[in-house]
Amino acid sequence: MIFDYTVVWDSLPLYMSGLLITLKLLAISLVLGLIIAVPLAFMRVSKRAAVNLPAWLYTYVIRGTPGLVQLFLIYYGLAQFDAVRDSWLWPWLSSATFCACLAFAVNTSAYTAEILAGSLRSTPHGEIEAAKAMGMSRFLMYRRIVLPSAVRRALPQYSNEVIMMLQTTSLASIVTLVDITGAARTVNSQFYLPFEAYITAGVFYLALTFILVRLFKRAERRWLAYLAPRNG
């Protein structure tokens, strides 16, 4: 017996429910992360230190610590304090799903903010001058010109971040969630077949990554066509 297919086949339902958990974690943390990241990115490009510094500190601390440490701090760390356990936050913080989503959202928000900030800084002067020449207000200029233009140029790097987040969600299995990796750990501990269990998980992640890459390629072709190299 080189590869035990029957074990993989029998545990497919477990992997499928794990797939749903993984997708749920990924979607929630990406949406939350993006919502936090946009204002942070604008703070990061501000010239005023009082605005820039807090955002700089946030992204520096979050990007400077591993996601695993952040998850442990939120899940086990906060639960250590009576004040937290007695507070109105506890119904949420006692849920492993909430803690995982929160940790992942915080993690991705810092990276996304830096990606977006870099993109904002490289906005061509011409676009801004044109917007000013049209008599746009500052807010209108940001909404119509600067942000859409920056988001477009951030797409390729952001696709990397999304794929990294997909792999990061595998950390959820250490706080009792049975995502794809959690399913693999369960299968391994039942049958003692680590190769079969983790290869199957790997195939699931590969397939998801393939789909994500495809989606981003499509998005880039649609919204970044004007930046693509031209023939002739």
């Binding site: 086990y76 639960a79 250590q80 356990r85 006692s94 501990s189």
Partner: peptide
């Protein structure tokens, strides 16, 4: 049923009330 890697983590979550 929740499954943990070690008994120590179970004690943490018992004390925490999870």
């Amino acid at each position: 049923v929740s499954r943990y890697a070690s008994q120590n983590e179970i004690y943490l979550d018992l004390s925490a009330g999870r």
